[in-house]
Amino acid sequence: MIDLLLILVVLTNLKLLGASRLGASIRTVAAQGVVLGLLPLVTHPHPLSIRILELAAGSVIIKGFLIPGLLFRAVREVDVSREIEPLVGYITSLLFGLAALGLSVWFGAKLPLPMGALSSWLVPVSFFCIISGFFLIVARKRAVTQVLGFLVLENGIYTFGVGAMQEVSPLVEAGVLLDVLVAVFIMGIIIFHISREFEHIETDRLSTLKD
């Protein structure tokens, strides 16, 4: 069951790397958020404790619905063309993704988790998310895609957190989720302003400030 969810995460990442439509990308990240929200339910020894249910529900709502909703709104209001316009082509991106996956598996084998982790896929998948997130931030022009990259990166770290430890204090979990939510909220507002200011949301034109 854990492996199934983790494979879904890998697939969503690959889909993101190859996706050409903005709307599809946001939906993919939303799907990834829902899958990751369900992860604690299967990794935890006592899945039906109130705390775990709360964490799962909170993650699903925030990562799966609230954040994508905010992004959809930002994109709709600015009414940009729906193409992603990558700096690195889709095929190259996918090839990069496969290479990154291989690297993550190799890396995960080098860094085994203690206490007999629930699935040997946890570490590779989380690293794969982190690398994909970085790649999306660097290789895509649109501000929205950079936010998606940030979310995938954050999801990778979250995957590691869920896998590596059974109990994280609720206050910290809530704080992390809240921080991400507010970050995306502010990013959404900025995207709106970037589009109004430049009549596009491509960050490669944000290049006035330099020495």
Binding site: Q146, F150, E154, A183, M187, I190, I194, L206, L209
Partner: peptide, 25 residues
Amino acid sequence: RDSRSLEATWKYLLICSVGIALALL
């Protein structure tokens, strides 16, 4: 609220957020 401060804000938020995400890891 002009284009220059917008650029600075975007860089600040994105770079710092990504950096701090690594600290979480």
